[in-house]
Simulated assay, not measured.
Amino acid sequence: MTKLIIAAGTGFLGQVLVNHFKNKFDQIVILTRGKSQTIDEIKYVNWNAKNFSGWENELENATVLINLAGKSVDCRYTKENKKEILWSRIKSTKVLNEAVLKCKNPPKHWLNSSTSTIYRFSLDKQMDEVNGEIGNDFSINVALSWEKAFFKIETPNTLKTALRTSIVLGKDGGAFIPLKTLAKIGFGGKQGKGNQFISWIHEDDFVNAIDFIIQKEITGIINIVSPEPIRNADFMQKLRKAVGFPFGIPMNTLLLEIGSFFIRTETELVLKSRNVIPKKLLENGFEFKFGDIDNAFRDLLN
């Protein structure tokens, strides 16, 4: 019997994974802060992502474990939030490591979230898994600590893969919804200088890539991004065209600072140049359905 466990699987990406994998596994278990219950043959089991309370037994005989746990970075970087962003990632990864080691028959493959934000701000160089340069700031140090917590404990019977994921563009959640709204009301101009790169991936390619990694048993660090990073100004121009709005007011850095204060987020999410490419996926023969942003937008708006 095949069994998939998704830790923190009730959000946008968790739902994308569930929809993709629901007919491919005999059983799906979601570890959630909500109550334990079964809905549509999917078993939800309560956990607090910090210590054992019975949920760890679910890992026995699991085929695949995917961990998505971590406080959203879409918030103000207050001292309190920064602490929560870091520790929600470290603690959940740590307790899962303990749970995996406790199992008689541990999960065969564990895929843990990470982020393409781990690479430095780059306008010049494309970052892949081999030659990518790691930067040094709050978000990057969180990513480094997260991957360290994941890899430093050896799990001899469980393969490990860290998913350095970029912005996932989806119909029902994530960054695409606010961006689409901005473009529709005339604020779809470039953000900041507009020359910063956006690394993105369509939700279908995101789940297909994860499926591919599981099938091929690819381990280590993998960039989950589309092959073509795109400059912010071009991204917004193509989005305006896709939603059919003729112009877009550009948002300079000051406007972004004011706006992000009001919507309780940080400008880093749009101003950092993430110039990341999926070298490992391509080398292993993965084929992207939406490598082109115009096709991706067309599909998402359809």
Rank of each mutant, 00 (worst) to 15 (best):
P106E: 01
K102R: 14
D26P: 00
F247I: 12
V243F: 07
I263E: 14
L163S: 02
F235M: 09
I210N: 06
N232E: 04
K50W: 06
I6T: 02
V95E: 01
I39D: 03
Y44F: 12
Q215D: 08
P229H: 10
W200C: 02
G192V: 05
V100M: 03
L254A: 07
D292A: 06
K108T: 15
D137R: 15
G244T: 04
Y77C: 08
G170R: 07
S166M: 06
K148H: 15
N136A: 15
R274E: 12
D294M: 06
G189D: 11
T161V: 07
G285S: 10
T63C: 04
V16I: 08
E228C: 11
G174Q: 07
N275T: 13
C103I: 08
F12E: 00
D124G: 07
L301Y: 09
N61S: 13
I258Q: 06
K104S: 12
R76W: 14
S53V: 02
G11E: 01
T155C: 10
A162K: 03
N23D: 06
I213M: 08
C75Y: 14
V16M: 09
L68C: 01
K193V: 05
G291P: 06
E129S: 14
R120H: 11
C75I: 11
L269Q: 12
E266C: 12
T10Y: 14
F197S: 02
R33F: 00
E287K: 10
P229G: 08
A242C: 02
N284T: 14
I42T: 03
R120E: 15
L163T: 06
L17G: 01
G70W: 03
V16P: 02
N131F: 15
Y77Q: 11
P178W: 04
D299R: 10
N46W: 08
I293L: 13
K171C: 11
F12Y: 13
I118P: 05
D137Q: 12
K125R: 11
D124L: 10
G174N: 08
M236F: 07
I221P: 02
F235R: 12
N57D: 12
D205N: 11
L13A: 08
L4G: 01
K238M: 11
L271E: 08
G54T: 02
V18M: 07
L17W: 02
N23F: 05
A233Y: 13
K280E: 02
L65Q: 03
V142K: 00
S88H: 10
F212I: 13
K125V: 15
N195I: 10
N195P: 00
Q237F: 03
G173W: 13
E257T: 13
N81H: 09
Q37R: 09
H20I: 06
G14R: 09
N302F: 06
T181Q: 09
Q215E: 07
E41N: 14
M236T: 09
T181M: 09
D137K: 14
G170N: 08
S53E: 15
A62I: 08
F290N: 01
V64G: 01
V270S: 09
L301F: 09
F286M: 03
K152G: 07
K50D: 12
I213E: 01
V29M: 01
E60R: 15
I249F: 13
K190R: 14
V29A: 03
D137M: 12
N223G: 06
N302T: 04
P107E: 03
H20A: 06
